[in-house]
């Protein structure tokens, strides 16, 4: 837990406003004070290019641009590629997980999740260097 920088700006990406709110609340409960939201990958990418974010927590199934497409776009961007991306999704079939790993996901949380599960994953993400395939 000590490895986590709670002042870091986090971007929560999900098309469901309720889910964004849940993730935001859980992140606040963990200790994060600066959390922003985006309803899809395209909007998220626009915000990320504005700079200042230290972590992306994204859903998989979203309109306009999916979480996987967002992850690939992040890893393909010279300025964003080292950004940790945590996938928080109901897409939990083996092929989805492998696809996400191959695309360079930092870790993977299955919905529904607890604050403890998210904290555990975040601790792991920041305890090691983010796997990047790019």
């Amino acid at each position: 837990m000590s490895d986590l920088d709670f002042t870091m700006k986090v971007l929560v990406v999900d098309d469901m406003s309720t889910m964004r709110r849940i993730v935001r609340n859980v992140l606040k409960q963990i200790g994060y004070t600066s959390v922003e939201e985006a309803p899809d990958g395209k909007e998220a990418l626009k915000k990320l290019k504005g700079g200042g974010f230290g972590l992306v927590v994204t859903d998989w199934n979203m309109p306009v641009m999916t979480g996987l497409e967002l992850l690939k776009a992040i890893r393909a961007d010279a300025e964003l590629k080292i950004l940790p991306v945590l996938m928080v999704t109901a897409e939990a079939q083996k092929e989805n997980i492998i696809e996400a790993i191959q695309a360079g996901v930092s870790n993977y949380v299955v919905k529904p999740f607890t604050a403890e599960a998210l904290l555990e994953k975040l601790t792991k993400v920041f305890a090691k260097k983010t796997p990047v395939n790019a």
Binding site: A92, Q93, K94, I97, I98, I101, Y108, V110, A117, P131
Partner: peptide, 23 residues
Amino acid sequence: EQSKTTALEQGLVDNILGEFGFN
């Protein structure tokens, strides 16, 4: 249809992640 039978729990997801070096 697939999600009725093939959705994985976090523990199983962690096992797959472990195979790829995510500890």
